[in-house]
Amino acid sequence: MTSPSALARRAAPMFACIGLLAVWQVASLALKNDSFPTAIEAIRAIPDILGDKESLINILASLRRMAIGFGIAVLVSIPLGLLMGRSRAVAAFFNPLLMVIYPVPKAALMPIIMLWLGVGDITKTLVIFLGVSLPVIYHSFEGAKAVEEKMLWSGAAMGLSPLQRLIRIVLPAALPEILTGCRTGLVLALITMITSEMIARQSGAGNILFNALDMGQYDTVYAMIIIVGAMGICLDAVFERVRARLVRWSEPQFDMPLSFS
């Protein structure tokens, strides 16, 4: 663990971050553009945002919508994906529907959803739900499809009913793939969260960001970008920890990009 190469590997992400900030700082000083603050100015603005009660409430409201949207999406998408993976009829029914939804940017649906449901939490949560669902369905589907037939037969011989096989064999066997989908879904939840707040401004992290942009407070804008980015990295790192624990039994897989854990 303490060999020089291991040490370098652990320190590398930090160096990458410092490098990025350094490039930013130099570029900003060179360009001398009012709408492009230096990295140091942006970082200085972070405590102001996090120290402000109003801003914190906004950010927490964002995270709450994101958690609800993500949670419901996962609860709906995993069973659906697994069923699709094990039943050709279910797959044949849902595949065309998903193919239609897939290429549509979920944020583009927002104006329509807003007409029905208003600009409140429900609309934004629904958009997050849509954004998260597809990768989770897709990966659950692929994971369920790949489950070894003989494993299911072994379960059937032990007396497991079809439903028991789905829950007790297909679900755990597909779990590594499902969690890969959830990880992608988590990042998409963050993205759709910000875009939904960009379109329906009312509260939230996106609201702070775009209000600051309107008012020309560019250090706040960039500080918010850093905060949102840091939130993404933290969420991903926590999720990766949980994922690694849940699928310890699995064959060693390639490390995913964006692994900070």
Partner: peptide
């Protein structure tokens, strides 16, 4: 059954 592919539950 005992299969050539073992078909153990890996989890």
């Amino acid at each position: 059954p005992v299969f050539q592919e073992f078909a153990l539950f890996p989890w």
